[in-house]
Nucleic acid binder design. Structure first.
Lengths: 337, 337
DNA sequence: CTGAAAGCGCTAACAA
DNA sequence: TTGTTAGCGCTTTCAG
C-alpha cells in the first residue's frame, strides 16, 4: 500500500494538517517544518491520493470531452487542440466518444450531474433545448465546439460566410457551372453542411447565376462516397467546371475520381474543400481553413475561464475563416475559354 | 447541491446501508424496500457520487491511455479500438498524450502510483527496464501495445516477419532493385522500424540479392519527408524498381512524388507500405496490415482480464499480419522485361 | 505557525 | 433483511 498523509505526519512528527499545508503550498508554515516534511515525503515516496483530494475539495480536476467517433480528421484535429492545451494545465482529459444518437443522449444526460468532471467540452454535437437546459441546471460549465446554442458558451465559425467565401472564389475565377457537394441534411448530426449550402446559394444568387438543382448533390460524408457523387456530377450533360465540397474529405474524394477519369485539375475542374485538415495540404486542395486545432485550444481556454470565475454572460467565440489557395483552383478552366 | 445517499435514506425512512445495497444490486434486500428506495432515488434525481465510491472501494473505474501525440493515423486507429472497446465496459478512458520524451517519463513515473487509474494502456512507447520495474512494483496492471518488454503484458506484431513478408512479396514479383525506406533509427521512440529493416535485409540475403546501402534510406517519418527521400532514391543512377516503406504514410509520400514525376505505378515503380491505415486503402497502396484497430481491442481485453484476476503469468499476444495487395504492386515492371 | 477534529459521499463489516 | 458504524485519504476549519 502506498503511504498516506498520516504516515508522513507520523514520520515527520507533525500533524496531518501541516503535511496538507505543505502539499498545498500554504504560506503559513515555517521554512523549517516545510523542509522537514518535504524530506519525509521524498523519503517515503509519497504521492497524495487524487481521489481523496477530489472528494474533499469537490473538484475533480477533470474535463470531459464528448465527441463523435474518432473517425474524422476534423474531430481528431480539434481533439488534438484540446488535448495539448489541457496538458498545460492541471486538468485531466476524459474521453467520451459517441457512436450513436443514444450514446450522445446518455452522455448528455448523465455526465453533467455525475460529479465526474469539472467541466464539459462538447465537439460537433449540438444539444437540444432540453439538453441545454439540463446543462445549465447542473451547474457544470459547458463549452460547445463547432455547435451552437443560445444558452451555452461556444466556439464556432460562420458556416454561411464560409460557404459564400468558397463559392465566390470560384465565381471570381470565372466559373459559372459551380456545384455544391454536401452531407445529407436530414441524417447529419450537424447543421453546418446546411449553412455552407446556404452560403453557396447566396453567392450563386448574388452573382446572378442559375440555381441548378442537378449541381447540388448530397450524400453520406466521406471520401469514398464523394467519389461516387463526383462520378454522377461528371456524367451530367453539362458537368460543372468547379465543385465546392463541404468538407476536405469530400474534396479529396472528388480529386480521386477526377484523377481516375483523367480530368485535369484545375484546368478541367476546380475543386475547393472546407476544413483545413492536414490531408488537404498533402492533396494540394484549395480549402476554407476553419482553424480546427485552434478551436480546441480556444474552447479549453474558455472553459477554464468559466471554471475560475463563472461568467455572468454567455461567451461566444467565432473563429476566423481563411481561404487557402492551393493547386486545385486557380487556372482558368479550358471550358471557360 | 445534488442529493446524497443520506437524503435518499432519510426520505425513504431506511438506513443508508440499505440505499447502498440497492445501489449495488445486493440480493439481500427485500423487493418492497428496493422498490421504495428506487422510487425515492427517482424522485430526488439522485446519482451516486463516483468519487466517493472510488475512495471507498479503491477502484477508480478508469483506464489511463498513454500514447504519442495524436498526429499519426496509426496511433489514432489503435486509440479508436481502445475507445470503442472500453465504451462497452464500465471503465472510463483518461487520455495522456506524450509530446516529448520528458512528458513520457513524467507519465511513466507518476501515473502508476497516483491512484488515478486502475490500469494503464501504453501505446507505441516502449519502457526502459527501470520504468517497467516501477510498473510492476506499483501493482497497477499495464498492457503495452506496439511495444514489448519481458516483464510486461503486451500486444504486438512480429516486425521482422512483416519486413520479410513485404520484401519477399516484391522479390516474388521479379524485383531485384528493392529499396527500404524507414524512420531514423536513433531518434525514433520506437524500434519497430529497425525490425522491419532487419526483415528487409533478411529477405534480401535469403534471395541472394545484393545489400545496396544506397537503397536503404532513413529519415524523419511522415508523408512529406518521404517525398523528399523518394526523390533522392529516384535520382540514383540505378533507381530501385520497388520500394518497401516502413509505414503507409511514407508509402503514400512515395506515391505523391512518383505521381509528380510522372512515374507509372506499378509499371515503373512498385510500392508497398506497412500499417494498414485507412489512407492506404484510399491511395490503393499495397500494404502489410498490422490490425491497428484490433490491437486496441485486444489490449483492452487483456487489461480487463488482468483487472479481474491478476494473472500469474505475463500475457503476450502477437497479432497476425496480412498482406493486402492493391494497385501499387502487381504488374511486372517494365524495367524487368 | 501548528495540531486536532470534522467532514466530503460512499462501501462494507458488524450487529441486530 | 436491515440499521449503524468505521473507515477510504485528503482539506479545512477552529483552537491554541
Amino acid at each position: 500500500m502506498s503511504p498516506t498523509i498520516r504516515d508522513v505526519a507520523r514520520e515527520a512528527r507533525v500533524g496531518i494538517g501541516t503535511v496538507s499545508r505543505v502539499l498545498n503550498n500554504s504560506p503559513q508554515v515555517s521554512d523549517k517544518t516545510r523542509k522537514l516534511v518535504l524530506a519525509v515525503i521524498e523519503e517515503l515516496d509519497f504521492t497524495p491520493n487524487p481521489i481523496a483530494r477530489r472528494l474533499s475539495t469537490g473538484k475533480t480536476l477533470t474535463i470531459g470531452v464528448i465527441l463523435p467517433n474518432l473517425t474524422r480528421s476534423s474531430y481528431i484535429e480539434r481533439l488534438r487542440g484540446v488535448q495539448e492545451t489541457l496538458a498545460l494545465t492541471k486538468y485531466h482529459l476524459v474521453l467520451f466518444s459517441v457512436g450513436t444518437i443514444s450514446d450522445r443522449d446518455d452522455y448528455f444526460r448523465t455526465l453533467p450531474s455525475s460529479s465526474m468532471v469539472d467541466g464539459l467540452l462538447i465537439i460537433s454535437l449540438p444539444p437540444t433545448d432540453k439538453q441545454a437546459k439540463r446543462f445549465k441546471e447542473s451547474g457544470v460549465p459547458v463549452v460547445l465546439v463547432d455547435a451552437d446554442h443560445p444558452d451555452l458558451c461556444s466556439v464556432t465559425i460562420d458556416d454561411i460566410e464560409g460557404g459564400k467565401l468558397a463559392t465566390q472564389y470560384l465565381v471570381n475565377q470565372g466559373h459559372k457551372k459551380i456545384s455544391y457537394m454536401g452531407d445529407i441534411l436530414e441524417t447529419a448530426f450537424h447543421p453546418s453542411t446546411r449553412y455552407r449550402h446556404q452560403g453557396y446559394l447566396q453567392a450563386i444568387r448574388e452573382n446572378g447565376l442559375p440555381e441548378q438543382p442537378e449541381y447540388q448533390i448530397f450524400g453520406d460524408s466521406g471520401r469514398l462516397n464523394a467519389r461516387k457523387m463526383a462520378d454522377s456530377l461528371f456524367s451530367l450533360k453539362e458537368p460543372p467546371t468547379a465543385i465546392f465540397a463541404s468538407s476536405d474529405a469530400q474534396g479529396i474524394g472528388i480529386l480521386d475520381k477526377a484523377n481516375e477519369l483523367g480530368l485535369k485539375v484545375p484546368e478541367d475542374l476546380a475543386v475547393i474543400g472546407f476544413d483545413g485538415i492536414l490531408e488537404a495540404d498533402y492533396a494540394n486542395l484549395t480549402t476554407i481553413d476553419q482553424n480546427l486545432y485552434q478551436s480546441g485550444v480556444e474552447s479549453v481556454q474558455m472553459l477554464l475561464a468559466c471554471l475560475e470565475n463563472p461568467p455572468a454572460t454567455i461567451n461566444k467565440k467565432i473563429l476566423p475563416l481563411e481561404l487557402i489557395a492551393r493547386k486545385t483552383t486557380g487556372v482558368s478552366p479550358k471550358s471557360l475559354g
